[in-house]
């Protein structure tokens, strides 16, 4: 009898503990987000969100910074998502298992552990000096891509690998080529995992500061938000202009800011950042569901 009861008790205890841990975690997040929303509440208004920052007086906004952050994540995603997923597919399906592949995989994992300032200085030498672009949004996006690629590639590879072998074999048995199997069967099944990777990577891009100090710069030129011609120097869409992102702005204001309301701005900007990450997250989930339905239409 004792033998049968004890596992059930441990089961109860374990379940309760897991609930406790998960609950504590959610509570921590609520406290975290609540803390920032509460301390940043006075700044969460349209004026703060859409006006230009000030350098010596109170009342500046974060308009250009917010735009730059979103645009940078978008640009870097445009480059890193296709390459990352493709590299993930390569390592999951095509790379010949062996020492070299293992070594490359290891190197890629290691790449994601580089301190971002090192990537920033590499980006500075390559994207700022070598290309002659000087400080540009594009340079920043490319530097962030270096940080993001390993994460996306790694998570994509894992997601593709974790699709059950039987599904893959079924597809191949039906006469589909390997590539067809990958695109039509493996990718849709792996999509949730891939999306997780992309969200993690984009979150990192959104919050990245050290890399961008040396590549995208710490100031925005005058921007004319009515000018949507991407080649024009004053257009916000021009990727070849310096750009200060929200995270860089928070860093700057905390460390060297002279404005009297630095603390409020930092709090407000942090709150906006958290809300933006939240919104971004929801969008990504929505997209993933949409794509999943489209690709995996026959399954559901």
């Amino acid at each position: 009898m004792r033998r049968r009861i004890r596992p059930q008790i441990t089961d109860r205890i374990a379940t309760a503990t897991l609930y406790l841990v998960a609950g504590a975690f959610v509570l921590l997040l609520v406290a975290f987000v609540g803390y920032f929303l509460y301390s940043g509440r006075s700044e969460l208004n349209f004026k703060f969100l859409f006006t230009e920052p000030a350098f010596s007086t109170a009342g500046g906004g974060i308009g250009p910074e917010l735009f730059n952050s979103i645009y940078l994540v978008f640009l870097s995603g445009l480059i890193s998502v296709p390459i990352g997923i493709a590299a993930g597919i390569y390592f999951a399906e095509y790379a010949k298992p062996g020492r070299l592949t293992d070594f490359l995989r290891l190197s890629i994992e290691t790449l994601s552990s580089l301190p971002s300032i090192v990537v920033g200085l590499f980006g500075f030498l390559v994207f700022v000096i070598l290309t002659g672009w000087k400080f540009t949004l594009m340079g920043g996006a490319l530097a962030v891509t270096i940080l993001n690629l390993p994460v996306i590639a790694r998570t994509s590879e894992d997601a593709i690998r974790s699709v059950p072998e039987s599904i893959k074999e079924g597809s191949l048995a039906l006469g589909a080529t390997r590539w067809q199997t990958i695109v039509r069967v493996l990718l849709p099944s792996a999509l949730p995992g891939i999306v997780t990777g992309i969200i993690i990577a984009s979150g990192r891009a959104f919050g990245e500061a050290a890399t961008l100090l040396y590549t995208a710069g710490m100031s925005s030129p005058r921007l004319d938000f009515t000018n949507w011609n991407p080649i024009s120097a004053t257009s916000p869409l021009n990727p070849f202009r310096p750009a200060e992102t929200l995270a860089v702005y928070i860093w700057k204001i905390n460390s060297e800011g002279l404005v009297p309301d630095a603390r409020q701005i930092a709090d407000g900007a942090s709150a906006v950042l958290i809300l933006a990450v939240l919104a971004f997250n929801l969008l990504a989930r929505f997209l993933s569901r949409l794509l999943g339905r489209r690709f995996g239409g026959s399954r559901s």
Binding site: L213, Y214, M218, P221, P242, E256
Partner: peptide
Amino acid sequence: VSVTVNGG
């Protein structure tokens, strides 16, 4: 004129 100022 466009002047940008960076730290570093």
